[in-house]
Design a binder for these strands. Sequence first.
RNA 1: GGCGGCGUAGCUCAGCUGGUUAGAGCGUGGGAUUCAUAAAUCCAAGGUCCCCGGUUCGAGUCCGGGCGCCGCUACCA
Length: 580
Amino acid sequence: MTDRKFLITAALPYSNGRLHVGHIAGAYVPADTYVRYLRATGAEVRFICGSDDNGVAALKTAREQGKSVEELTAHFNACQKRDFDGLGIEFDIYGGTHQPDYVKTHEKFSQDLFRKIHEKGLFTKRSTKQLYDTQADQFLPDRYVKGTCPHCSSDNAFGDQCEGCGRAIDQLSLVNPISVMTGSKPELRETVHWYLRLDALQGKLTEWLASKKDATVCGAQWRPTVLNQSLGRIEAEGLPERAMTRDLTWGVPVPLDDPDAEGKSLYVWFDAPIGYVSFTGALCEKNGEGIEAYSNWWKDPECKVVHFIGEDNIVFHAITWPAMLLASHDSDDLQGATGEYQLPHNVVSNSFLNIKFPGKDEEKISKSRGTAVWIEDFLKTFDPDPLRYYLTSIAPESARTAFDIDDFVNRNNTELVNAFGNFFNRTMTFAHKYFDGKIPAVGSRDDVDNEHLVRCQQAVEKTGTELDACHFKAGLGEVMALARAGNGYFDVTKPFLSRKTDMEACGRAINVCFQTARTLTTLVAPFLPATAKKCAEILNLDDNWQSWASATDELAAGHAIGEAQILIKKLDPKEVFSDA
RNA sequence: GGCGGCGUAGCUCAGCUGGUUAGAGCGUGGGAUUCAUAAAUCCAAGGUCCCCGGUUCGAGUCCGGGCGCCGCUACCA
């Protein structure tokens, strides 16, 4: 087990806004849970994230807020980091593609990869016409041009799609185009860009993706949506060349000795995933291994790279990004030979989270419509673990689900508190009342005791199996099932009766309850780290308590436990709603 | 239009390569109990597994068709 090596990434949040529950449910809680589990099994893991700072969207927001783009992205980078910290999502490094401490390294990595692909002849240089905002002094992406729809004459049409009739629009066919950046009338200009030859890579990519269909062959369970969406797309439309450069100065400069490259940046979707690599380099440097040690993670076939993303990122992480990596290869090895960038071992994607307010229909989370539940606000009222619990239990693993504050409170109270918290609490208080705060003697266990202990062992295995497969909802379900089984055992053995008649039997039962609590502590740790830590303190466990292998190590009779305390607070729906 | 996902108990959802009386949690009704954050536990009621057809000894599970909801369709990330 200890020879396993993983590099886990969570999607880089774009640094022009705060984080809401949808972001967290999609990529971050699952990734953090996975990392914690892998570490518990003894794997060597690095967990990488950071902000995606480049691109025109940050410029636009900065302009709207009257800030410099550096100021804006630094601000939100810090906000996001705070939110992650508050939720117990612990990256080994939280970088930023244009943050002062990372931008140089990031540029170097991005430019190196671009050059490498260029040398391999997998870019096509081509000229196109595009709208230009003379006031903002920049070319306008489709979405940044507004105008009248050529189909339905709606005034609410953008350069990519009409909001009125929903039809796709060519930017140049818009009637009376207006720049969203400045409101001025754009003019048509000629521009040159470098296009990635996805067409040339299509065969290899298809083969690579197809190899992920069989988990027993590739060793990773790809979610059907990720695979089918990507393969379906390629099969239906093929892969055309895609521009990987933009007319923009806020980004990574195009590293070519070519007058046409002047004033151009790499497309933000080209450089963003390279952030995973450059932040790894920065982490290695910080750890004193030197920046080049990144290759121990990225260019070693023994290391498994797993990306956690939201559904909007599927195409980029399952097609474009692997294409970039493939394009850099000298060998024909699909996954990457030693010394070459390894293609992702898995891409784990969740659907989006909708939101459901009391008395209203389920709807999309939207900043502009004010339907987002911000992490910052949430953490002012609630502890992080109930949110982690809720988001994992309703995780949109196969279809969209909805965040419902009513449901959140209910699940917290009826599941987390009543089943899990209560089992701990009744065991602890019982031991304090009748066994002087010490683990009672094992006694001579009977079938009921032994069967329950076997049940604990099975829970460890089942939870592990689910987590290995990135089935977080199911994994958490196994943990909760054990907590319920613990309650069942308590009720069947009735130590509260035997304490009056047979202290040996009473102690025996409580001893088994403690072993169960011990196991639960390790099992719940990947999901609810703060709660697990509390459990470990209460149980007075040694430093190795998170190790999966030690989950069923028995607490010795006589072992002293700490004070009993409430693990999870019960929430009063009335108070919660008055806040919302 | 094309591609993809979803449609299973009142609610939220599990059901891998087809196989005994279709599962869990919540909710509801009831029993028994008191160590516990008035919690736990046990039992029960509740389903045409969206519809039609096909393959099969046998389909919620595979195939074809249809209906409904949703997402994607790349140069906004």
